[in-house]
Simulated assay, not measured.
Amino acid sequence: MAQTLPKPALRPFLAADVPILAAIFVAAIEELTVDDYSEAQREAWASGADDEERFGKRLASELTLVATLQNSPVGFASLKGADHIRMLYVHPSAAGQGVASMLCDALEKLAGARGAKSLTVDASDTAEGFFAKRGYVAKQRNTVTMNGEWLANTTMQKSLLSDAPKGATQ
């Protein structure tokens, strides 16, 4: 008899989540972006979680959702304002299990509920394919500096208007 994998669940961010979300952030960068960024770039990027208090304040200042498997956090995503995905990170051990898709689905619904007509994200080179499969279109290539290292990403955008059910009436 085949065993079913546990389904991920979502819940709001809690202040007590900061240490584990910082660890997920670092692990995702260190392990999942190896093909796209140098070691020095990954270290500079991951250093964004070195100051847990500051990292936690950033998460708390945005609409942050936490994905869990069997009640343990395995990923998180945050929505800045009504229309910008600020962060989307999944622990390497949970990658490929639908966690990122579930987080992104939820942010897209929340952005639409907040009146956003479209949603943007500054996608890492690693995440660009994920967002493209979800209908996000590349708009602009960017270079950002973190702790003296240059990292490239792509601003991508998805229209939320086409997500309305066909034949729906107001």
Results as ranks from 00 to 15, higher is better:
residue 3 Q to S: 13
residue 77 A to M: 04
residue 64 T to C: 10
residue 56 G to V: 08
residue 91 H to C: 08
residue 81 G to C: 05
residue 146 M to Y: 06
residue 59 L to Y: 14
residue 110 L to V: 11
residue 3 Q to F: 05
residue 62 E to W: 03
residue 134 R to N: 06
residue 156 M to R: 09
residue 60 A to P: 06
residue 158 K to R: 12
residue 26 V to L: 03
residue 60 A to T: 04
residue 166 K to C: 04
residue 80 K to A: 11
residue 21 L to R: 06
residue 88 L to T: 12
residue 82 A to F: 10
residue 35 D to I: 00
residue 3 Q to M: 14
residue 68 T to K: 04
residue 92 P to D: 12
residue 87 M to S: 12
residue 21 L to Q: 10
residue 142 N to K: 12
residue 76 F to D: 09
residue 68 T to V: 05
residue 84 H to Y: 12
residue 164 A to P: 00
residue 8 P to W: 04
residue 4 T to K: 14
residue 50 D to S: 15
residue 79 L to W: 09
residue 8 P to E: 09
residue 45 W to R: 06
residue 64 T to L: 09
residue 78 S to M: 04
residue 104 C to M: 12
residue 3 Q to R: 15
residue 108 E to Y: 02
residue 85 I to Q: 10
residue 170 Q to E: 15
residue 89 Y to R: 05
residue 68 T to S: 15
residue 107 L to D: 08
residue 136 Y to S: 12
residue 19 P to N: 04
residue 126 T to K: 07
residue 84 H to M: 11
residue 81 G to M: 02
residue 109 K to F: 11
residue 112 G to D: 09
residue 95 A to S: 15
residue 85 I to P: 00
residue 101 S to T: 11
residue 160 L to H: 13
residue 90 V to Y: 07
residue 14 L to I: 02
residue 138 A to D: 14
residue 48 G to S: 11
residue 131 F to W: 10
